[in-house]
């Protein structure tokens, strides 16, 4: 499978493979070997506080974990089984319920067993991110001798 065919197939199947991504209504806005951009719709369920209207930080972690994982798989060019080793987020600004969140993630370095990713989350203005994040993933499928798409 060449790279563009793989990306197209990944784009089609990735969201339906994860029940929780489907439940959250996540959609892929952009996907290439270089980066992945996901959109999270705004919902009352994501409220972090009954009074302030702010997003809860937890749903931002869900968005970032998915985006970074997708960016790593797209960069690998095959459906490696990956596991998150760690994730770190800085919450730069509050985000308020009412408009969607976007997350763009890039794989910044990939070795046979480890992948490093960086992500930026914004709401209305990409130039004023609400969060930045870094994640490290283990590529557990990388050393398999047999094929498969796990």
């Amino acid at each position: 499978m060449d790279s563009s065919t793989f990306i197209a197939a990944l784009r089609e199947r990735y969201l339906e493979l994860s029940p929780h991504m489907a439940e959250c209504g996540l959609t892929i806005r952009q996907l290439s070997a270089d980066s992945a951009t996901l959109e999270l719709p705004s919902r009352e369920d994501w409220l972090g506080d009954v009074e302030s209207g702010r997003f809860n930080p937890g749903i931002v972690s869900v968005l970032v974990d998915n985006s970074a994982g997708l960016a790593v798989i797209a960069h690998a060019g095959r459906r490696d089984a990956i596991a998150t080793l760690d994730l770190r987020l800085d919450y730069l600004r509050p985000a308020f319920i009412g408009s969607p969140l976007f997350c763009r993630a890039r794989c910044t370095r990939m070795t046979p067993s480890i992948a490093f990713a960086h992500a930026v989350v914004w709401q209305d203005n990409e130039a004023a991110p609400i969060a930045t994040a870094q994640g490290v993933f283990m590529r557990s499928g990388a050393n398999r001798v047999t094929g498969g798409d796990a």
Partner: peptide
């Protein structure tokens, strides 16, 4: 009010 998150780091 709910405290504001500054940062978060998790190791799996």
């Amino acid at each position: 009010r709910v405290p504001k998150s500054i940062d978060f780091a998790i190791d799996y």
